[in-house]
């Protein structure tokens, strides 16, 4: 069984006269450990697709099955539980909690996922932060870090709970090319070391080069698929 299965997924926004067909029928299977890029111009439905995969939203029709459970049939709280255990998010605009330090942002995500005391939490958090190269900036707040550093905290936050799946929505859009490279290389390394499944969207050709599987999205449909080694 695949980690993720999408079957004829459609998503329509809006009601009444103005309807936006964000996805017009997407079929997709993703196995554990894959490193997939969804590529497409803005408005092609990338973010919508990621939101559905990330159990943030439900499809208008079709089936999204994650780790064996279908998200269309789940209620809000079940979705929240699914997200906290299985999915890590990385956003274009970092979205760290501004009142928490880098360390706390990461630890917070871990605490949410693993209820109860975890003796190894401190070790885990410090470990992951040093892996993304922030071992010496644990106690800085987001506004004291650069954009690239912020995004690296976000990567650490997404990975710390060792999710099956990490979703990244244009993770490098707000970064310069140097920082972009750093963040992407970290993601590739994590993919190899932890066997975490990565799916990310981008319209940046440079980012595409890192992908091993490439899906091109256009007008809400997958129009091209390509695997590379």
């Amino acid at each position: 069984m695949s980690l993720l299965e999408l079957e004829d997924v459609k998503k329509i926004y809006g009601q009444g006269e103005i309807k936006v067909f964000a996805l017009r029928g997407v079929d997709l299977e993703i196995e554990e450990g894959e490193f997939t890029t969804i590529f497409g111009p803005s408005g092609s439905g990338k973010t919508t697709l990621l939101n559905l995969i990330g159990a943030l939203d439900k499809p208008t029709s079709g089936r999204v099955q994650l780790n064996g459970s279908s998200i269309g049939e789940m209620n809000k709280n079940q979705l929240a539980l699914l997200r906290r255990q299985n999915i890590g998010f990385i956003f274009q605009s970092f979205n760290l909690i501004p009142v928490l330090t880098a360390y706390e942002n990461v630890e917070f995500a871990l605490k949410i996922a693993e209820k109860g005391e975890n003796r190894k939490a401190k070790e885990k958090v410090e470990n992951i932060l040093s892996r993304v190269g922030l071992g010496d900036m644990l106690h800085r707040r987001p506004n004291q870090l650069s954009g690239g550093q912020n995004q690296r905290v976000a990567v650490a936050r997404a990975l710390v709970k060792e999710p099956k799946l990490v979703l990244a929505d244009e993770p490098t859009a707000n970064l310069d090319s140097e920082a972009s490279k750093e963040v992407l290389e970290i993601m590739v390394r994590m993919n190899k070391e932890l066997n975490t499944t990565f799916i990310f969207s981008t319209h940046d050709p440079m980012v595409m080069e890192y992908a091993r599987r490439l899906l091109e999205l256009k007008d809400g449909m997958i129009c091209r698929e390509e695997r590379r080694e």
């Binding site: 943030l56 255990q85 979205n95 949410i112 996922a113």
Partner: peptide
């Protein structure tokens, strides 16, 4: 608003 959305993405329940 963004923070609320992010917390939800992290898996926080509405409660």
């Amino acid at each position: 608003v963004k923070e609320i959305g992010m917390m939800k993405a992290l898996g926080l329940k509405e409660n």
